[in-house]
Amino acid sequence: MQRREFFKQLGAATAVAAVALPTMSFAADAKPSGPNKMSFETALNAITGGKTPVKSDKIKIKVPEIAENGAVVPVTATVDSPMTDSDYVKSIHILAGGNSNARCIDVNLTPANGKAMFSTRIKLGGTQEVSAVAVLSNGEVLIASQSVKVTIGGCG
């Protein structure tokens, strides 16, 4: 997909807002389909069950301050955790508040992962804040955010 095309699509997002509104009761084993429209708040609520996440040094998000292009933005979330059966990170979630669907990915971990880390590449429809949310085995919910400036430019 062309970058400009991508921005156009995101611009057009509001026009198709009425399509396929996922609800907060999104079942655990149901899978996303079609284009989704989900705000940051809705996504966060669905993940935490309404619990307010706590900003913490235990969770770190690594994203570029300036993204070379919005189509491929590297993002890594790391949580400081022993990952034992009694104390581990149950899930890591990546959210992009400025996208028409803020929810990028939900990663369910187990102690067998050994470390609580997840890394991927996401599409960003413009300058916005990207967040990593972690749900711990003791029920705590942590969050870390960083803003990413998405530049439009360069040659091709």
Partner: peptide, 24 residues
Amino acid sequence: GKEITNMTVWESLSVNPVFTTNMK
């Protein structure tokens, strides 16, 4: 035979996506 990680993926991941985790 044991599921160690499962992910629910939404449409905002880049084309030709990459998923990186750890495993013991």
